[in-house]
């Protein structure tokens, strides 16, 4: 005789959460997948960025009046340094040639690279 197992409230809760998540995502995706939503979202973003830009420019003018570097000035200097670093890395790479870039790593270089795949992996594979 088949026995009825007692109800599991935890499983019911999990199922409820899954259904809720699915429904909310589905409805939200329908709303957010419309052209009007895209237009609204991007319009809000455009306004937010415009405010940010205006604030940044005003701050830049004040700093310039005080003969202080702006954030933009500091970033430009950092960009130049990054460019020097990049050029150094290229020079280093060309000088290195085929020399190892790090001290030989015994954990890797000491191990033979002769491993073969299990025979069953080769079944059905074309010869290479």
């Amino acid at each position: 005789m088949a026995k009825d197992s007692p109800p599991d409230p935890a499983a019911a809760f999990r199922e409820l959460v899954t259904q809720w998540e699915r429904n909310i995502n589905s409805v939200a995706n329908q709303v957010m997948g419309t052209e009007s939503f895209s237009r609204l979202m991007q319009e809000m973003q455009r306004m937010q960025l415009a405010v940010q830009q205006a604030t940044s420019e005003a701050m830049g003018r004040r700093l310039a009046a005080m003969n202080m570097p702006t954030r933009e000035d500091v970033i430009r200097v950092a960009e130049k340094l990054a460019d020097v670093e990049r050029r150094l890395a290229h020079i280093e790479a060309s000088l290195d040639g085929s020399a190892p870039v790090a001290p030989p790593d015994a954990s890797s270089s000491g191990r033979p690279r002769t491993r073969q795949p299990p025979v069953e992996y080769l079944q059905g594979e074309k010869p290479r």
Binding site: A82, E85, R86, V101, T114, R115
Partner: peptide, 24 residues
């Protein structure tokens, strides 16, 4: 792992092998 190389946003890690014989 060890960090083999890094420059700005870039990081290259090398993980310590865990078996005696490696694929080539």
């Amino acid at each position: 792992k060890t960090t083999l190389y890094g420059r700005g946003t870039l990081q290259l890690y090398h993980y310590k092998p865990q078996v005696d014989e490696l694929y080539r």
